[in-house]
Nucleic acid binder design. Sequence first.
DNA 1: TCGGAAAACTTGTCAGTGACAAGACTGCGA
DNA 2: TCGCAGTCTTGTCACTGACAAGTTTTCCGA
Lengths: 193, 193
Amino acid sequence: MTRYDPGVTESRAYHHGDLRRALLAAALEAIEEVGPTALSLRDLARRAGVSHAAPAHHFGDKAGLLTALAAQGFDLLAQALVQAGDDLLEAGVAYVDFAVRHRAYFEVMFRPELHRADDAELTAARERAGAALRSGVAALPGGGAPADTDRDALSAWSIAHGFATLWLAGALPDRVGNNPREAAREVLSRLTT
Amino acid sequence: MTRYDPGVTESRAYHHGDLRRALLAAALEAIEEVGPTALSLRDLARRAGVSHAAPAHHFGDKAGLLTALAAQGFDLLAQALVQAGDDLLEAGVAYVDFAVRHRAYFEVMFRPELHRADDAELTAARERAGAALRSGVAALPGGGAPADTDRDALSAWSIAHGFATLWLAGALPDRVGNNPREAAREVLSRLTT
DNA sequence: TCGGAAAACTTGTCAGTGACAAGACTGCGA
DNA sequence: TCGCAGTCTTGTCACTGACAAGTTTTCCGA
Protein backbone atom coordinates (compact mmCIF):
# COMPACT_ATOMS: atom_id res chain seq x y z
CA MET A 1 0.00 0.00 0.00
CA THR A 2 2.76 2.43 0.88
CA ARG A 3 5.07 0.76 -1.59
CA TYR A 4 5.81 4.03 -3.35
CA ASP A 5 6.70 5.81 -0.11
CA PRO A 6 10.25 7.16 -0.62
CA GLY A 7 11.29 7.12 3.02
CA VAL A 8 10.88 10.24 5.10
CA THR A 9 7.25 11.32 4.90
CA GLU A 10 4.55 12.43 7.24
CA SER A 11 2.99 9.00 7.60
CA ARG A 12 5.74 7.05 9.31
CA ALA A 13 6.52 3.74 7.74
CA TYR A 14 8.00 1.02 9.85
CA HIS A 15 11.24 1.39 7.99
CA HIS A 16 12.60 4.89 8.07
CA GLY A 17 14.46 4.51 4.80
CA ASP A 18 17.46 6.69 5.51
CA LEU A 19 17.80 6.59 9.25
CA ARG A 20 21.57 6.47 9.38
CA ARG A 21 21.92 9.70 7.45
CA ALA A 22 19.05 11.31 9.34
CA LEU A 23 20.66 10.48 12.68
CA LEU A 24 24.00 11.94 11.65
CA ALA A 25 22.30 15.13 10.48
CA ALA A 26 20.32 15.35 13.71
CA ALA A 27 23.49 14.78 15.70
CA LEU A 28 25.20 17.71 13.97
CA GLU A 29 22.28 19.96 14.84
CA ALA A 30 22.10 18.74 18.41
CA ILE A 31 25.83 19.16 18.98
CA GLU A 32 25.69 22.72 17.69
CA GLU A 33 22.96 23.37 20.24
CA VAL A 34 24.12 21.57 23.35
CA GLY A 35 27.63 20.27 22.66
CA PRO A 36 28.81 16.73 22.05
CA THR A 37 28.72 15.81 25.72
CA ALA A 38 25.08 16.60 26.32
CA LEU A 39 24.14 14.82 23.12
CA SER A 40 21.49 12.20 23.78
CA LEU A 41 20.80 9.24 21.52
CA ARG A 42 17.20 9.28 22.67
CA ASP A 43 16.89 12.89 21.60
CA LEU A 44 18.27 12.04 18.17
CA ALA A 45 15.75 9.24 17.90
CA ARG A 46 12.96 11.67 18.74
CA ARG A 47 14.21 14.15 16.15
CA ALA A 48 14.24 11.42 13.52
CA GLY A 49 10.83 10.16 14.62
CA VAL A 50 11.93 6.66 15.57
CA SER A 51 12.03 4.69 18.77
CA HIS A 52 14.73 5.20 21.36
CA ALA A 53 16.56 1.99 20.52
CA ALA A 54 16.69 2.48 16.76
CA PRO A 55 20.05 4.32 16.66
CA ALA A 56 21.83 1.33 18.19
CA HIS A 57 21.11 -0.72 15.09
CA HIS A 58 23.11 1.63 12.89
CA PHE A 59 25.93 2.70 15.17
CA GLY A 60 26.04 0.20 18.01
CA ASP A 61 26.39 2.86 20.66
CA LYS A 62 27.00 6.55 21.15
CA ALA A 63 30.73 6.26 20.45
CA GLY A 64 29.91 4.52 17.19
CA LEU A 65 27.77 7.40 16.01
CA LEU A 66 30.38 9.97 16.97
CA THR A 67 33.09 7.92 15.26
CA ALA A 68 31.15 8.11 12.01
CA LEU A 69 30.73 11.84 12.52
CA ALA A 70 34.44 12.33 13.19
CA ALA A 71 35.36 10.46 10.02
CA GLN A 72 33.01 12.66 7.99
CA GLY A 73 34.63 15.66 9.64
CA PHE A 74 38.18 14.68 8.73
CA ASP A 75 37.13 14.23 5.13
CA LEU A 76 35.54 17.67 5.08
CA LEU A 77 38.67 19.13 6.65
CA ALA A 78 40.92 17.45 4.10
CA GLN A 79 38.75 18.88 1.37
CA ALA A 80 38.95 22.39 2.86
CA LEU A 81 42.73 22.18 3.17
CA VAL A 82 43.18 21.00 -0.41
CA GLN A 83 40.96 23.82 -1.63
CA ALA A 84 43.09 26.33 0.27
CA GLY A 85 46.01 25.42 -1.96
CA ASP A 86 49.72 25.24 -1.27
CA ASP A 87 50.02 28.52 0.64
CA LEU A 88 50.68 27.52 4.25
CA LEU A 89 49.11 30.66 5.69
CA GLU A 90 45.95 30.13 3.68
CA ALA A 91 45.84 26.52 4.80
CA GLY A 92 46.04 27.67 8.41
CA VAL A 93 43.26 30.18 7.88
CA ALA A 94 41.18 27.45 6.24
CA TYR A 95 41.83 25.19 9.25
CA VAL A 96 40.54 27.82 11.67
CA ASP A 97 37.64 28.63 9.40
CA PHE A 98 36.67 24.98 9.29
CA ALA A 99 36.75 24.70 13.07
CA VAL A 100 34.50 27.71 13.50
CA ARG A 101 32.03 26.92 10.75
CA HIS A 102 31.88 23.21 11.52
CA ARG A 103 32.23 23.39 15.24
CA ALA A 104 30.26 20.19 15.83
CA TYR A 105 32.57 18.16 13.61
CA PHE A 106 35.71 19.75 15.00
CA GLU A 107 34.80 19.12 18.60
CA VAL A 108 34.13 15.46 18.01
CA MET A 109 37.22 14.96 15.87
CA PHE A 110 39.66 15.93 18.58
CA ARG A 111 38.09 14.31 21.61
CA PRO A 112 39.24 10.72 21.59
CA GLU A 113 37.12 9.87 24.61
CA LEU A 114 34.03 10.53 22.52
CA HIS A 115 34.77 8.16 19.67
CA ARG A 116 36.72 5.03 18.77
CA ALA A 117 40.05 6.47 17.73
CA ASP A 118 41.23 3.18 16.20
CA ASP A 119 38.28 2.80 13.86
CA ALA A 120 39.48 1.94 10.35
CA GLU A 121 37.37 4.47 8.47
CA LEU A 122 38.21 7.20 10.93
CA THR A 123 41.92 6.45 10.75
CA ALA A 124 41.85 6.59 6.98
CA ALA A 125 40.00 9.91 6.92
CA ARG A 126 42.39 11.36 9.49
CA GLU A 127 45.31 10.26 7.35
CA ARG A 128 43.85 12.02 4.32
CA ALA A 129 43.57 15.25 6.31
CA GLY A 130 47.12 14.85 7.60
CA ALA A 131 48.43 14.40 4.06
CA ALA A 132 46.66 17.56 2.93
CA LEU A 133 48.27 19.49 5.77
CA ARG A 134 51.78 18.19 5.10
CA SER A 135 51.59 18.95 1.42
CA GLY A 136 51.09 22.61 2.29
CA VAL A 137 54.22 22.61 4.42
CA ALA A 138 56.33 20.71 1.89
CA ALA A 139 55.63 23.44 -0.62
CA LEU A 140 57.16 26.08 1.63
CA PRO A 141 59.70 28.28 -0.18
CA GLY A 142 62.49 27.67 2.31
CA GLY A 143 62.21 23.90 1.83
CA GLY A 144 64.98 22.54 4.08
CA ALA A 145 65.68 19.00 5.27
CA PRO A 146 62.75 16.58 5.78
CA ALA A 147 63.21 16.79 9.54
CA ASP A 148 62.70 20.54 9.32
CA THR A 149 59.57 19.99 7.26
CA ASP A 150 58.22 17.68 9.95
CA ARG A 151 58.91 20.23 12.62
CA ASP A 152 57.45 23.04 10.58
CA ALA A 153 54.32 21.02 9.94
CA LEU A 154 53.88 20.44 13.66
CA SER A 155 54.41 24.11 14.42
CA ALA A 156 51.91 25.19 11.81
CA TRP A 157 49.37 22.63 12.92
CA SER A 158 49.86 23.62 16.56
CA ILE A 159 49.34 27.33 16.06
CA ALA A 160 46.29 26.89 13.85
CA HIS A 161 44.80 24.27 16.12
CA GLY A 162 45.52 26.32 19.21
CA PHE A 163 43.94 29.45 17.83
CA ALA A 164 40.89 27.53 16.67
CA THR A 165 40.52 25.81 20.02
CA LEU A 166 40.87 29.02 22.00
CA TRP A 167 38.37 30.71 19.70
CA LEU A 168 35.82 27.96 20.19
CA ALA A 169 36.39 27.97 23.94
CA GLY A 170 35.63 31.68 24.03
CA ALA A 171 38.95 32.15 25.78
CA LEU A 172 40.29 34.92 23.53
CA PRO A 173 40.09 38.57 24.61
CA ASP A 174 37.38 40.74 23.08
CA ARG A 175 39.78 42.83 21.05
CA VAL A 176 40.36 39.87 18.75
CA GLY A 177 37.01 40.72 17.19
CA ASN A 178 34.49 38.39 15.66
CA ASN A 179 35.97 37.62 12.28
CA PRO A 180 37.87 34.37 12.70
CA ARG A 181 39.53 34.42 9.28
CA GLU A 182 40.92 37.90 9.73
CA ALA A 183 42.09 37.28 13.26
CA ALA A 184 43.63 33.95 12.32
CA ARG A 185 45.53 35.48 9.43
CA GLU A 186 47.11 38.02 11.75
CA VAL A 187 48.08 35.52 14.42
CA LEU A 188 49.28 32.81 12.05
CA SER A 189 51.35 35.19 9.95
CA ARG A 190 53.66 35.53 12.92
CA LEU A 191 54.86 32.00 12.14
CA THR A 192 55.15 32.12 8.38
CA THR A 193 57.16 35.30 8.08
CA MET B 1 32.27 12.33 72.85
CA THR B 2 34.14 12.62 69.57
CA ARG B 3 34.86 16.24 70.28
CA TYR B 4 38.58 15.78 69.69
CA ASP B 5 38.04 14.10 66.35
CA PRO B 6 40.02 16.15 63.82
CA GLY B 7 37.83 15.45 60.86
CA VAL B 8 38.77 12.66 58.49
CA THR B 9 39.04 9.44 60.48
CA GLU B 10 37.99 5.85 60.16
CA SER B 11 34.85 6.19 62.25
CA ARG B 12 32.69 8.44 60.15
CA ALA B 13 31.29 11.38 61.99
CA TYR B 14 28.16 13.05 60.75
CA HIS B 15 30.25 15.99 59.68
CA HIS B 16 33.03 15.06 57.34
CA GLY B 17 35.16 17.97 58.42
CA ASP B 18 36.85 18.80 55.14
CA LEU B 19 34.42 17.59 52.54
CA ARG B 20 34.91 20.41 50.09
CA ARG B 21 38.61 19.76 49.78
CA ALA B 22 38.09 15.99 49.74
CA LEU B 23 35.60 16.29 46.90
CA LEU B 24 37.93 18.43 44.81
CA ALA B 25 40.75 15.96 45.35
CA ALA B 26 38.50 13.05 44.45
CA ALA B 27 37.34 14.93 41.36
CA LEU B 28 40.91 15.37 40.18
CA GLU B 29 41.55 11.66 40.56
CA ALA B 30 38.31 10.71 38.85
CA ILE B 31 38.91 13.05 35.93
CA GLU B 32 42.37 11.60 35.38
CA GLU B 33 40.72 8.20 35.22
CA VAL B 34 37.59 8.74 33.18
CA GLY B 35 37.67 12.32 31.92
CA PRO B 36 35.64 15.32 33.04
CA THR B 37 32.56 14.28 31.10
CA ALA B 38 32.14 10.88 32.70
CA LEU B 39 32.71 12.40 36.13
CA SER B 40 29.87 11.51 38.47
CA LEU B 41 29.00 13.47 41.59
CA ARG B 42 27.67 10.30 43.14
CA ASP B 43 30.99 8.59 42.55
CA LEU B 44 32.80 11.47 44.23
CA ALA B 45 30.45 11.17 47.18
CA ARG B 46 31.22 7.46 47.44
CA ARG B 47 34.95 8.13 47.29
CA ALA B 48 34.62 10.65 50.09
CA GLY B 49 32.38 8.33 52.08
CA VAL B 50 29.36 10.62 52.20
CA SER B 51 25.84 10.43 50.88
CA HIS B 52 25.03 11.14 47.26
CA ALA B 53 23.49 14.52 47.96
CA ALA B 54 26.32 15.90 50.10
CA PRO B 55 28.32 17.48 47.24
CA ALA B 56 25.43 19.75 46.35
CA HIS B 57 25.77 21.54 49.67
CA HIS B 58 29.29 22.69 48.85
CA PHE B 59 29.11 23.31 45.12
CA GLY B 60 25.43 23.56 44.21
CA ASP B 61 25.77 21.34 41.19
CA LYS B 62 28.31 19.66 38.95
CA ALA B 63 29.19 22.89 37.15
CA GLY B 64 29.84 24.50 40.52
CA LEU B 65 32.38 21.87 41.45
CA LEU B 66 34.14 22.10 38.10
CA THR B 67 34.17 25.88 38.33
CA ALA B 68 36.07 25.65 41.60
CA LEU B 69 38.45 23.17 40.02
CA ALA B 70 39.04 25.42 37.00
CA ALA B 71 39.83 28.38 39.25
CA GLN B 72 42.37 26.29 41.16
CA GLY B 73 43.83 25.25 37.83
CA PHE B 74 44.31 28.80 36.57
CA ASP B 75 46.10 29.70 39.76
CA LEU B 76 48.41 26.73 39.40
CA LEU B 77 49.06 27.68 35.79
CA ALA B 78 49.84 31.28 36.71
CA GLN B 79 52.28 30.01 39.30
CA ALA B 80 53.98 27.73 36.75
CA LEU B 81 54.28 30.54 34.23
CA VAL B 82 55.77 32.93 36.77
CA GLN B 83 58.27 30.29 37.82
CA ALA B 84 59.31 29.80 34.20
CA GLY B 85 60.58 33.37 34.18
CA ASP B 86 60.65 35.95 31.41
CA ASP B 87 61.91 33.70 28.64
CA LEU B 88 58.99 33.25 26.27
CA LEU B 89 60.14 29.86 25.04
CA GLU B 90 60.47 28.58 28.59
CA ALA B 91 57.03 29.93 29.40
CA GLY B 92 55.61 28.02 26.45
CA VAL B 93 57.34 24.85 27.54
CA ALA B 94 55.98 25.37 31.05
CA TYR B 95 52.48 25.83 29.60
CA VAL B 96 52.66 22.52 27.77
CA ASP B 97 54.22 20.84 30.77
CA PHE B 98 51.38 22.07 32.95
CA ALA B 99 48.76 20.75 30.54
CA VAL B 100 50.34 17.30 30.46
CA ARG B 101 51.08 17.00 34.16
CA HIS B 102 47.78 18.50 35.28
CA ARG B 103 45.62 17.14 32.55
CA ALA B 104 42.50 17.10 34.73
CA TYR B 105 42.80 20.80 35.53
CA PHE B 106 43.65 21.75 31.97
CA GLU B 107 40.70 19.95 30.46
CA VAL B 108 38.23 21.61 32.78
CA MET B 109 39.78 25.05 32.41
CA PHE B 110 39.20 25.28 28.68
CA ARG B 111 35.78 23.72 28.36
CA PRO B 112 33.30 26.47 29.13
CA GLU B 113 30.37 24.10 28.84
CA LEU B 114 31.64 22.29 31.91
CA HIS B 115 31.83 25.24 34.28
CA ARG B 116 30.41 28.69 34.90
CA ALA B 117 32.72 30.88 32.85
CA ASP B 118 31.48 34.09 34.45
CA ASP B 119 32.17 33.03 38.03
CA ALA B 120 34.00 35.80 39.91
CA GLU B 121 36.72 33.65 41.44
CA LEU B 122 37.32 31.86 38.18
CA THR B 123 37.52 35.11 36.24
CA ALA B 124 40.05 36.52 38.69
CA ALA B 125 42.23 33.41 38.54
CA ARG B 126 42.09 33.39 34.76
CA GLU B 127 43.15 37.01 34.72
CA ARG B 128 46.16 36.22 36.90
CA ALA B 129 47.24 33.53 34.47
CA GLY B 130 46.74 35.88 31.54
CA ALA B 131 48.90 38.52 33.19
CA ALA B 132 51.68 36.00 33.76
CA LEU B 133 51.58 35.05 30.10
CA ARG B 134 51.66 38.63 28.83
CA SER B 135 54.57 39.59 31.05
CA GLY B 136 56.64 36.94 29.29
CA VAL B 137 55.83 38.42 25.92
CA ALA B 138 56.41 42.02 26.98
CA ALA B 139 59.94 41.07 27.98
CA LEU B 140 60.74 39.92 24.44
CA PRO B 141 64.00 41.38 23.11
CA GLY B 142 62.41 42.75 19.94
CA GLY B 143 59.88 44.77 21.97
CA GLY B 144 57.87 46.56 19.25
CA ALA B 145 54.63 48.51 19.48
CA PRO B 146 51.98 47.41 22.01
CA ALA B 147 49.81 46.13 19.17
CA ASP B 148 52.64 43.86 18.12
CA THR B 149 52.98 42.64 21.68
CA ASP B 150 49.30 41.75 21.74
CA ARG B 151 49.61 39.84 18.50
CA ASP B 152 52.78 38.10 19.62
CA ALA B 153 51.13 37.09 22.86
CA LEU B 154 48.23 35.56 20.96
CA SER B 155 50.59 33.72 18.63
CA ALA B 156 52.62 32.34 21.49
CA TRP B 157 49.53 31.33 23.42
CA SER B 158 48.03 29.69 20.34
CA ILE B 159 51.04 27.57 19.47
CA ALA B 160 51.59 26.42 23.06
CA HIS B 161 47.90 25.75 23.59
CA GLY B 162 47.60 23.97 20.28
CA PHE B 163 50.55 21.71 20.90
CA ALA B 164 49.32 20.90 24.40
CA THR B 165 45.82 20.15 23.16
CA LEU B 166 47.02 17.93 20.33
CA TRP B 167 49.32 16.12 22.73
CA LEU B 168 46.49 15.44 25.16
CA ALA B 169 44.20 14.34 22.35
CA GLY B 170 46.77 11.78 21.28
CA ALA B 171 46.62 13.32 17.82
CA LEU B 172 50.36 13.80 17.31
CA PRO B 173 52.35 11.30 15.26
CA ASP B 174 54.47 8.76 17.09
CA ARG B 175 57.77 10.27 16.04
CA VAL B 176 57.12 13.21 18.38
CA GLY B 177 58.17 10.88 21.18
CA ASN B 178 56.97 10.82 24.75
CA ASN B 179 58.81 13.72 26.31
CA PRO B 180 56.43 16.66 26.15
CA ARG B 181 58.96 19.28 27.29
CA GLU B 182 61.53 18.30 24.68
CA ALA B 183 59.00 18.07 21.89
CA ALA B 184 57.38 21.34 22.88
CA ARG B 185 60.70 23.13 22.93
CA GLU B 186 61.40 22.05 19.37
CA VAL B 187 58.00 23.00 18.03
CA LEU B 188 57.70 26.29 19.90
CA SER B 189 61.20 27.43 19.01
CA ARG B 190 59.96 27.78 15.43
CA LEU B 191 58.03 30.83 16.63
CA THR B 192 60.56 32.53 18.85
CA THR B 193 63.53 32.45 16.49
C1' DT C 1 25.55 27.78 80.04
C1' DC C 2 21.95 27.34 77.25
C1' DG C 3 19.01 27.80 73.39
C1' DG C 4 18.02 28.87 68.78
C1' DA C 5 19.60 29.41 64.16
C1' DA C 6 22.58 28.12 60.57
C1' DA C 7 25.44 24.81 58.48
C1' DA C 8 26.42 20.06 57.22
C1' DC C 9 24.78 15.94 55.93
C1' DT C 10 20.98 12.24 55.20
C1' DT C 11 17.19 9.67 52.97
C1' DG C 12 13.82 9.60 49.44
C1' DT C 13 12.29 10.55 44.98
C1' DC C 14 11.85 11.89 39.97
C1' DA C 15 12.79 12.27 35.16
C1' DG C 16 16.25 11.40 31.88
C1' DT C 17 19.91 8.41 29.85
C1' DG C 18 22.69 4.38 27.56
C1' DA C 19 22.64 -0.29 27.00
C1' DC C 20 20.68 -4.64 26.39
C1' DA C 21 17.08 -8.35 25.40
C1' DA C 22 13.33 -10.09 23.02
C1' DG C 23 9.90 -9.61 19.79
C1' DA C 24 7.40 -7.46 15.45
C1' DC C 25 7.66 -5.95 10.84
C1' DT C 26 9.42 -5.71 6.01
C1' DG C 27 11.60 -6.45 1.77
C1' DC C 28 14.96 -8.92 -0.89
C1' DG C 29 16.79 -12.94 -3.06
C1' DA C 30 16.66 -17.91 -3.86
C1' DT D 1 6.32 -17.61 -2.81
C1' DC D 2 8.76 -18.23 1.09
C1' DG D 3 12.41 -17.83 4.44
C1' DC D 4 15.67 -15.05 6.36
C1' DA D 5 18.36 -11.10 7.42
C1' DG D 6 18.03 -6.46 8.34
C1' DT D 7 15.26 -2.79 10.44
C1' DC D 8 12.71 -1.05 14.00
C1' DT D 9 9.78 -1.47 18.50
C1' DT D 10 8.62 -2.25 23.32
C1' DG D 11 10.24 -3.27 27.77
C1' DT D 12 13.53 -3.08 31.28
C1' DC D 13 17.72 -2.16 34.21
C1' DA D 14 21.24 0.41 36.51
C1' DC D 15 22.96 4.82 36.81
C1' DT D 16 22.89 9.87 37.01
C1' DG D 17 21.85 14.97 38.47
C1' DA D 18 18.69 17.63 40.77
C1' DC D 19 15.47 18.66 44.18
C1' DA D 20 12.71 18.27 48.62
C1' DA D 21 12.33 17.39 53.27
C1' DG D 22 14.14 15.75 57.41
C1' DT D 23 18.14 14.89 60.93
C1' DT D 24 22.38 15.92 63.20
C1' DT D 25 25.92 18.98 64.61
C1' DT D 26 28.21 23.32 65.40
C1' DC D 27 28.36 27.92 66.56
C1' DC D 28 27.33 32.18 68.57
C1' DG D 29 24.96 35.50 71.25
C1' DA D 30 22.19 36.46 75.40
